[in-house]
Design a protein around this nucleic acid. Sequence first.
DNA 1: CACTCACGGTTCAATGACTGAACCGAACTG
DNA 2: CAGTTCGGTTCAGTCATTGAACCGTGAGTG
Lengths: 173, 173
Amino acid sequence: MALGREYERQNCALARALEVVGERWTILVLRDLFFGVRRFTDLQAHLDIPRAVLTDRLTRLVDEGVLTRTEYRRGRHEYTLTPHGRELWPTLFALSTWGERHNSPDGPRRIFSHAPCKADLVPSGQCPSCGELPPPEEIDIRPGPGLGRERTDQVSIALREPHRLLTPLRTGA
Amino acid sequence: MALGREYERQNCALARALEVVGERWTILVLRDLFFGVRRFTDLQAHLDIPRAVLTDRLTRLVDEGVLTRTEYRRGRHEYTLTPHGRELWPTLFALSTWGERHNSPDGPRRIFSHAPCKADLVPSGQCPSCGELPPPEEIDIRPGPGLGRERTDQVSIALREPHRLLTPLRTGA
DNA sequence: CACTCACGGTTCAATGACTGAACCGAACTG
DNA sequence: CAGTTCGGTTCAGTCATTGAACCGTGAGTG
C-alpha cells in the first residue's frame, strides 16, 4: 500500500515506527489505553471515531504486538498495552508536553506525578525528586486548570478522576 | 476539514499537537530538518515524497510557527526549525528509539552523542555522563552498524557523515 | 419464554487526501 | 542564447476516512 501506511524507501527507525503508530487516530487510541480505557465502546464514545476505523486500528495494533486483546465475556474484548506498547509512553508524554506548551492558555490540562515520590513531573518527563524518567506504571494523573468540562460522556467524566495510568477505567454506568 | 487534519472534539494537548505534526510525512520532514537538510529539492530527493505534499507540509509548518522560510537566493528558500520546532526533538528521539528497539536487528542505525560530554545517549535520551536530556544543538549524530547503504542519492550520502544536528547539510554536488 | 437493549462489529456510498506525472516560469550556466 | 536546475502548481486516478445503517450474539427484564 503506497498510500497511508508505509514509508518503504526510508531506511530509518522513525519511518518504521510511523508505519505502526503514524496513522490518523492511532496515537489518540493509545493515549486512551494509557489512561485506562479498555473497551471498544468506551474508546468509541470518548474519541468520536468511526467504528470501522477503530476496528482497523485496534486489530492492527494487536498484529504489531502493541496491544493484546482478551475476551472478558463471550464476544466482548478488552484491549491492553503490551510491554512493547507501554514503551511508547515517553513519546506520548513528549508530544503531549509540546502541545501543552504552546496551546494551553489556562495552564496544563493534565498533571502527571511520580507516585513513589509524590512529585509532579517536569516537562522533560523527569521526576524532580529522583531524577528518573518514570514508567507509566508509576505515574498518577489528575486534571489541571486547563482541562475543560465540555465533554460529559461517562468516559470523559471518569477520566477526570485522579488515577494511576494503566488501571482500568471505572465508568459511572 | 473534518477529515485528515483536525480532532476538534478532543480536549487534549496531544490532539492539538497531532493537528500540527500528525499528518503523513510531517514527522519525516522534521527529522530531515533536524539532520541538517534545508532545501526543497534535497528534502524531496531524500524523502521520495510527492512535491505537492512537500509544499503543503512546509507551508503548513511555517504557518504553525514550527519552521521559518528564508530566501537565500531569488526564488530559492531554506527551511529551518524555529525554537518551537526544535522543542519537538524529544518526541522524535523517543519515537525513533522505540522504532529502533524492535526493528533494528543489526544494531542501531544512528548513534547520538552529547557533544560536550562526548558520551553516547542512552535510550531515554539522557546523557549518561551529565544526566541531562540534551537539546539538539548539543547532539552529534553518526551512523551505527544497522544503517544500510542502499540509498545513494547525494543527501543520503552526506547524511552518513558524522555531524552536529541542525548544521546545514553539505552535499557533494 | 418473549422482548429489549448493549456490545462489537461489518458494509456501503460519499468525500477528501495522497500519488505520480506533467507542466511552468524564473534564474543561473556555458 | 540554449539548456538546466530549482521550486513550485495542476490534474486525473487511487486510496483512506467518514457517518450512517445494519446485524448477530448474549445478558437482563417481566
